[in-house]
């Protein structure tokens, strides 16, 4: 619940807003704050984590390969990435659908044909689409990071659930997702050690970018526009004072 009044009244008591879940781990994200920007290297590592780990279950329906230019890839690199996927196209002149290599304009490859297939493959649980995940969860990037690194031994008072894993950051504490990350499960192209924490931070950065790709432009322009309006306010304040001073005479 992120309503205005709640903010006013309970700004200092976050635990009440997140009832029953552990307080989130906070990370000093590079994209936080007024001048926040994305760390391109982290974004690209995060994309690698998504591609090699998350993408086998989680779709990102709203993203296209062309969007990857936004994390620092050149158009040719994007083309090469897109080409590694097979995309259905058609119908061709014979009226048949056919497979072709992906193009930058294509949407990200989806692991399942539809939600039903996704549920069928995951014991009835639907792996959520990740296109907007940091915007669609209370706590945003911190929540995603906390969840990814938050798997733990269940306390004695928690009743174990078959096929579910204990995670104090998840709303029900028992989550259907297998702990997705383990040390050195992937090999980063830039040689960064692939610890769970590193991978969680990188993929969270990537997901935050995917949710709000406009964030850098928004903050840069926002800063300039707010400065402009602030100066304009001061100018208007003096004009107003001058005009009204006429009445005193």
């Amino acid at each position: 619940m992120r309503s205005f009044f709640l903010y006013l009244v309970f700004l200092t008591v976050p635990s009440l807003a997140m009832e029953g879940t552990a307080p989130l781990k906070t990370v000093d994200w590079s994209f936080n704050g007024i001048f926040g920007t994305f760390d391109r290297a982290s974004l690209q590592r995060g994309f690698q984590v998504y591609k090699e780990v998350c993408a086998s279950c989680h779709s990102m329906k709203l993203l296209s390969y062309r969007n990857l230019e936004g994390i620092g890839y050149t158009p040719n690199q994007v083309k090469a990435i897109a080409q590694t996927y097979e995309v259905q196209d058609g119908p061709n002149d014979d009226g048949e659908m056919f497979m072709r290599p992906g193009k930058p304009k294509d949407r990200f490859f989806q692991p399942y044909a539809n939600d039903q297939a996704a549920r069928a493959a995951n014991n009835g649980a639907l792996p959520p689409d990740l296109s907007l995940i940091t915007k669609a969860r209370e706590g945003g990037a911190d929540y995603v990071y906390s969840l990814l690194t938050g798997y733990a031994e269940a306390p004695v008072n928690e009743k174990p659930m078959v096929g579910l894993y204990y995670n104090p950051y998840f709303s029900a504490h028992w989550i259907a997702m297998i702990p997705p990350l383990s040390d050195d499960m992937i090999e980063y192209q830039d040689g960064t050690p692939a610890t769970v924490d590193q991978m969680a931070q990188d993929v969270t950065t990537f997901l935050a970018w995917a949710s709000e790709p406009e964030i850098e432009v928004r903050k840069q322009w926002g800063f300039r526009i707010i400065i402009f309006l602030f100066i304009f306010s001061i100018v208007m304040f003096f004009i107003n004072a001058r005009i009204w001073a006429r009445l005193e005479k």
Binding site: F228, I231, F232, V235, I239, R242
Partner: peptide
């Protein structure tokens, strides 16, 4: 000074 101020105000308004 007033004229300069008001001119600045107009300019900023138009630019905005």
């Amino acid at each position: 000074r007033r004229d300069f101020l008001i001119l600045t105000g107009y300019t900023m308004g138009a630019a905005g």
